[in-house]
Amino acid sequence: MTSAKFRPRDVGPMVLVLAFVFVSIAPLLWMALAAFKPTADIIAIPPVWIPDFTYLQNFQDVLTQFWPFIVNSLIATVGATILALVLAVPTAFALVNHRFRGREALADWILSTRMMPPIAAAVPLFVIFRGAGLLDSLPGLIIAYAGFNLPFAVWMTMSFVRRVPKELIEAARLEGCTWWQVLTGVVLPLSKSGLAAVATFVFIFAWNEFMLALFLTTREAKTFPVVISSFIGTGRVYWEYIAAASVIQCLPPVLFTFFMQKHIVSGVTMGAVKD
């Protein structure tokens, strides 16, 4: 800040910005506060602005009744993240470092599958999964999530693999490395930060995914977002559970991103080749 001087003509934009921030943050704020209120306080008029933060009944109810679905969500998310990376990394490595007929077309085709709206795939996927016995199963969800994220994961990984200097790969090959050893010994350690970023994106997508889970699961493999939506019943809306569950739902991506951030360090490849 070079100048903190107040200028009258800044008032207009400032008010606009504040209004925008308020509109954006209000629902979240409402949700976070409502999570600590009993039902009566949530709908009370005049509103109870500041709840009693020691009131944890909503969280306790949600966790005790619905914890298996949180576990489902976790398994599906972590599974999908791992599967997507396991498939995307060798794919991206091959697409970047091997010259073969149709390489670009293949890369473009992978990207193009991303352009299909998930809803378009939902019905065919349902039919296929029913045939394969994957409906309402966590492996099914993991496959679906990893599949939907693969194009993105491949392309993002490609951009990181491409940053590994070509000479390093050539040097490794001349030193006697097989392609697999080049990947595990040179490319992976040097794209760690990039892979952390890819993992973060896949994790957040899978954790927050709602629509596919709604289509493909019924009881056993139901994920937490689907459970949250079920709190809006025909007879009654369980605002207090929605609020508490939403707070819970928000936590893992925040924690995961925070944890991954430490790994997303720049300058890992410094000193590899000339400055």
């Binding site: 000479e167 040097a171 490794a172 010994g185 890992v268 590899a272 080749v273």
Partner: peptide, 30 residues
């Protein structure tokens, strides 16, 4: 990898995640 040749690159092409000792011993370890 099977030609038993060693190359020194203009850009040195050292492995940045490995120490000097590991860089020198890379081929032997592989």
């Amino acid at each position: 990898s099977e030609r038993q040749l060693a190359m020194v690159f203009q850009s040195y092409a050292l492995f940045p995640h490995l120490t000097v000792a590991d860089n020198i011993g890379f081929g032997l370890r592989v």
